[in-house]
Every structure is written in structure tokens, then in C-alpha cells.
Design a binder for these strands. Structure first.
Lengths: 168, 168
DNA sequence: AAAATTTGTTAGCCTTGCCTAACAATTATA
DNA sequence: TATAATTGTTAGGCAAGGCTAACAAATTTT
């Protein structure tokens, strides 16, 4: 709790709309009110009014009854959201071994509130475990073993103990 | 982002109030409107009206001009929030090596949206790295080295290569 | 091209959750 | 104990962001 110093530029809701628009466009779908509505599971009038608010902020262009487009600035914001989303969902699946669906759901929520630092660290973390593939059992394997058995694999403990012994 | 199937029981705001009440009480401070107001950085009338909403849901007891208390049910909800908060802030500091302040801020936001599964995995993850202390350089050290130098420590790579060699 | 369907908008309502201003109760102080 | 200071409440406002109902434009079908 305790409020953050700097208020976020855009609300979670606005970020969701921008993200949805960017992703529909990237999927080569016409970006229409109905598409956004379906994707975000809100009714069309909610989309219309959201687009109005986004227009006022200069983030989208939308003529009545026509397609929706991002402005260059909207593009930048959307890109940021998508990037956070992808990093988070990757972290959840790769680092924490969470199923894709849950990972996506959590990413959708957390992308709106996570700090740049924490996000950066999650990305570094993924890099880190990907840089460890030579060790056997490597990081993800050991972690999965721990998830399943509640302890580290034998050989891993053994290796640790060896070192302990040697130290004496 | 695609809505979650199950709507959260209580809003982030309500959870913040419950958490604040529990923590003030645990700090042996009188739980008064003014205290909550200070802690959450909202004005007193906002607290009064929030308490009214919480009363209606049977989560707090609050007589006009008097102290605030949690009901048994409010207690359970508050406990859940505090638990999520602590697990998250621990994960950020211990696993990702993030400074306490940022960790707290992020925990405050994410505690309201994270799924039970992801939370559980973060907890397991902390257990996992704490179960690795025998290896040298151990997990947190290697991770910190990676953060600072952008690569794994020499000896770590060397060990990996040895194994590669042996395999040939 | 007329009719039917789909899509989009407008108007208007509702809840949440914050705010300020004004007032009331409580507590502390002279 | 009377007054001052603090604390809390009430009343009322406002923005965000959702909704439905009714209507209008666009598109598709006949």
C-alpha cells in the first residue's frame, strides 16, 4: 500500500486498450471497436468512451465508425506495455515454471504496476539462468526437481557436502 | 488483457485498508481513522467512507468516533494480504536483489493482483535458493555477480566446460 | 435496391474511491 | 471548567470506467 511517489502516466485500463490495439494491429486484424470489445471483454460503448479519452490524450486516432490507429506516442506507450507483458510472462514460465495461462493472466495484471527496476531484474534473471546451461543438473532442472520433491537432487547435495568435507 | 475468470473478492483499495488496520494494530497503535489516513496517505473522509463499505461487508467494526477493529472475517482477509505482501517483498529482495524500498512498493501493488500459484512458486523459489547454500559460489552470489558483470563467474563457467570435456 | 444484420454511437445510469468545505464530537490545555 | 486543538463525520462534488437501451451508420444478404 503506501502510495508511490510518481503517479503512473496512464491507468491500467488505458494501458489495456493501447495494448489490445497494438496487438490486434500486429495480428493484421482490422482494429475496430468490436474487436477491441471482444478482446478486452467489455461492451462496445465502453470502448467508444475509452477511445475518446485516449484521443484527448493524443494516443489514438479514431474517426466515427472507422478504424482505430495509434499515434506515434500511443505506439510508444503500447510498446512499453507489450514489452512488460512479455518479460513478465517469460519470467513466470521460464523462471518459476508456471503454466502459460496463469503466466499470461498474471502478466496482464502486473504489467500495469511493476517498477522498471523489478522488471529489469526479472529480465536479467532470465538471462542469468539461460547463461547457466552447462551445469548439470542445471538451474531450471534443479528448480523443477525441488518443486516436485521439496528438496535438491542427491548429487547436488553431495557436491555441496564434498566441499564441506574438503574445507575441514 | 483478457479478464480473469474469478473476480477478486475485494478491491485493491479495500485490501489496503484491511492491511493497514492489521498492521497498525500489530504495531500496538490505536487503530483510529487518523492513523489509517496517515498511513495510506488519503484524507480522513476517504477513510470514513471506506470503513463504511468495509462494515457493510462485515470486515470491520467501527462505531462513530471510536476505534476500528477487524471482524474475524476481516482478520482472515487482512492476514492474506499481509502474507502476500511479505512473500513478495521477500522474493524481490532475496531472489532478485532489489532494494527494500522498491521491493516494498512493488509488493504493495502486486499483492492485490497476483495469482495464488505464482505466489506459491515465488515462496518455493525462495526456499529453493535457501536450500542451495553449500555450492560455491552459491546461487545468490552467482546471480549478483551476473548482475554486476553481465556474465557468470569464471570458475562457474570452467566447471561447466570440464563437464563438457569429460563427455567427449 | 430494399431489407436484414452487424457495427458503432449516444444518452444516461451506476459504483468506486478520491477530494474539499463545513460542522460536530472528543480530547487536551490554560 | 472553559477554551483550544485535534479528530471524525457529513454533505456534496468529481473522474474513471463500467453498464443498458435506443438509435444510427455501415455492410451484407436477398
Amino acid at each position: 500500500m503506501v502510495k508511490q511517489q510518481v503517479e503512473r502516466e496512464h491507468s491500467p485500463s488505458m494501458e489495456d486498450y493501447l495494448e489490445a490495439i497494438a496487438m490486434l494491429r500486429d495480428a493484421n486484424k482490422a482494429v475496430r471497436v468490436s474487436q477491441i470489445s471482444r478482446r478486452l471483454k467489455v461492451r462496445m460503448p465502453s470502448v467508444t468512451s475509452a477511445l475518446e479519452r485516449l484521443s484527448e490524450k493524443g494516443l489514438v486516432v479514431h474517426e466515427r465508425y472507422r478504424y482505430v490507429e495509434l499515434t506515434p506516442e500511443g505506439e510508444i506507450v503500447a510498446e512499453g506495455v507489450v514489452h512488460r507483458h512479455e518479460a513478465l510472462s517469460c519470467f513466470f514460465t521460464e523462471a518459476l515454471d508456471i503454466d502459460r495461462e496463469t503466466a499470461e493472466e498474471d502478466a496482464c495484471k502486473i504489467e500495469h504496476v511493476i517498477s522498471p527496476l523489478s522488471l529489469e531484474r526479472m529480465i536479467k534473471f532470465i538471462e542469468f539462468i539461460q547463461a547457466c546451461p552447462l551445469e548439470e543438473p542445471n538451474f531450471p532442472k534443479r528448480y523443477k526437481y525441488y518443486l516436485e520433491h521439496g528438496k535438491l537432487p542427491e548429487e547436488c547435495l553431495a557436491r555441496g557436502l564434498e566441499k564441506e568435507e574438503r574445507r575441514k
